[in-house]
């Protein structure tokens, strides 16, 4: 691995409990395209066969009952409950927020989710519905999902969402630029968006289904982290291939290594295609075994999903009641 000009003397113990969440100063920005290419080109490659084998092996871990219950709750608390449709309406956003706050009204012990995720024009509405509740409003921005707009339009998109009360911004990278090797362009755009975010947290969507290779996923992860991402996120959910375990594995390796190199701890969001509690638990095992248990918190790991929540609720109820429950026990929102 090419040594990046940002090594910290105080890298946290990965897997230990004492990670400092106040991020140290970001490393100085990398200058040129060439420097970026050298730095990212120096990352070790990913052998897809080995990565697939690793996730397959971890997929066979079986969890203790108590652990399973705790993890189901944890998974609920990690959800960015999402609606990103052209047909979204105030009514839809209202029911989403209601569900976010109290996923299962019959059981107050069910935690609220981490955030609701909506388009920028619905941020204000969502914030109003949620009130002071500790559920974040996340907004996709930067000409989501394609990212095909000028930088000014993208930045305006971000600023409006933040002004409307978004706590978190889910931006998309310019995949076209990335795939044509214009890494500096992608980098600069993330830096600009980060600045436009102000105090809002930035999640950078790599759209891994369009980057295709795991090598690209690793490079894009590092590029995003170097540029200031608080989270790296797999997908928009708008292309056929969304989050997959090997992709998340590689992103988890990236945040682990980045923390070791720089002391900066970045989160991971797996979005799209995760519908079952069983899959969610497998992802959490992946988090635990790859980045370490320090990442098992909504601060550092999220699921971008909608239908996943109900399956988690069903499994939770099954754990509690000892039998399978019908899906209609939970709201379809």
């Amino acid at each position: 691995m090419v040594s990046l000009p940002l090594r910290s003397q105080h890298a946290p113990e990965i897997g230990g409990a004492d990670i400092t969440f106040a991020p140290p100063a970001r490393p100085s920005l990398l200058g040129s395209e060439a420097e970026l290419r050298v730095a990212l080109g120096g990352l070790s490659g990913v052998d897809a066969v080995g990565a697939n084998a690793r996730v397959a092996a971890l997929g066979t871990r079986s969890l203790k009952q108590g652990t399973k219950r705790a993890l189901l709750d944890l998974a609920i608390s990690m959800i960015d409950l999402t609606t990103l449709e052209g047909m979204d309406t105030p009514g839809k956003v209202r029911s989403l927020c209601t569900k976010a706050l109290r996923p299962d009204p019959s059981d107050p012990s069910v935690p609220h989710v981490a955030a609701v995720c909506v388009y920028p024009d619905l941020v204000e509405m969502a914030r109003n519905f949620l009130g002071d509740a500790p559920v974040a409003v996340a907004s996709v921005a930067t000409a989501f999902p394609s990212g095909r707009a000028s930088l000014n339009v993208k930045l305006a998109d971000v600023r409006e969402a933040v002004a409307a009360g978004a706590n978190e911004i889910d931006m998309v990278i310019d995949r076209g630029a990335f795939l044509t090797g214009k890494l500096g362009l992608v980098y600069d755009e993330i830096v600009a968006v980060k600045e436009a975010c102000g105090s809002a947290h930035l999640k950078v969507i790599l759209e891994t289904g369009e980057l295709v290779t795991l090598d690209n996923v690793r490079r894009a992860s590092w590029l995003s982290m170097l540029a200031g991402a608080d989270f790296i996120k797999t997908s928009t959910g708008k292309v056929p291939v969304a989050a997959t375990p090997p992709v998340v594995l590689v992103m988890l390796e990236a945040v682990r290594d980045f923390a070791e190199e720089t002391g900066v701890v970045v989160g991971v969001k797996a979005a799209g295609g995760i519908r079952s509690a069983k899959d969610a638990l497998k992802y959490l095992v992946l988090v635990n075994e790859t980045a370490g248990s320090a990442w098992l918190t909504p601060d550092l790991y999220r699921f971008g999903a909608s239908s996943l929540l109900n399956d988690l609720l069903m499994q939770r109820a099954k754990q509690r009641d000892g039998h399978y429950v019908r899906s209609d026990r939970f709201s379809g929102d």
Binding site: L63, K64, G66, T67, A70, L71, V285, S293, L296
Partner: peptide
């Protein structure tokens, strides 16, 4: 949430 320092796998 109480952080799970180490996931316990079921025997």
């Amino acid at each position: 949430w109480s952080r799970l320092n180490d996931l316990e796998y079921a025997p």
